[in-house]
């Protein structure tokens, strides 16, 4: 794809460090029960390269065909891990306890409340308005 080996190597190292085993955390011993955290992981990266098109005045003689053309590029990436549940292994057996993202749910609840109030207002305005 690209001839920038260093960037490709670093990106590949990032990709290799995140595999399916990272979804399940290490076993935490809490006495009579053990806890295993579970996360949903997502990551992404992008990169691009291209020749540098610099401004060349008209008076400058044309460059030779075999002249080297400079290339430039850039890239970036990120990763996100969000806990979604944990496995609890205890005397009762193996249980999976979900973890609720309260911030997202609260925000969605506010939006739902505003949506409902808006529709209620439209309906009441129509019902009690003169023809």
């Amino acid at each position: 794809m690209t001839d920038n080996p260093r960037m490709m190597t670093e990106m590949q190292e990032m990709v290799d460090s995140i595999n399916v085993d990272r979804v399940f955390g290490p076993v935490e011993d809490l006495g009579d029960r053990q806890i295993i955290p579970i996360a949903a992981i997502s990551y992404g990266f992008g990169m691009g390269f291209g020749p540098v098109e610099e401004f060349v005045p008209e008076s400058t003689p044309p460059a030779a065909d075999d002249a080297q053309v400079a290339t430039a590029g850039g890239g970036g990436g990120g990763a996100n891990a969000r806990p979604i549940a944990y496995i609890e292994v205890g005397p009762e057996g193996t249980l999976i306890k979900p973890i609720l993202d309260e911030q997202k749910v609260a925000l969605a609840g506010i939006l739902l409340g505003a949506w409902t109030v808006g529709w209620l207002g439209v309906v009441l305005k129509t019902l009690f308005s003169r023809r």
Partner: peptide
């Protein structure tokens, strides 16, 4: 000369093998 990649890893289930036998447990996304 440009590329991108997005990967999402989402746990879906656990199969438990124990003294009581084998059991499939779903991992819910609450």
């Amino acid at each position: 000369e440009s590329t991108f990649q997005i990967v999402q890893l989402r746990p879906i289930s656990v199969v438990e093998e124990g003294p009581d036998g084998t059991r499939w447990i779903e991992i819910p996304n609450a």
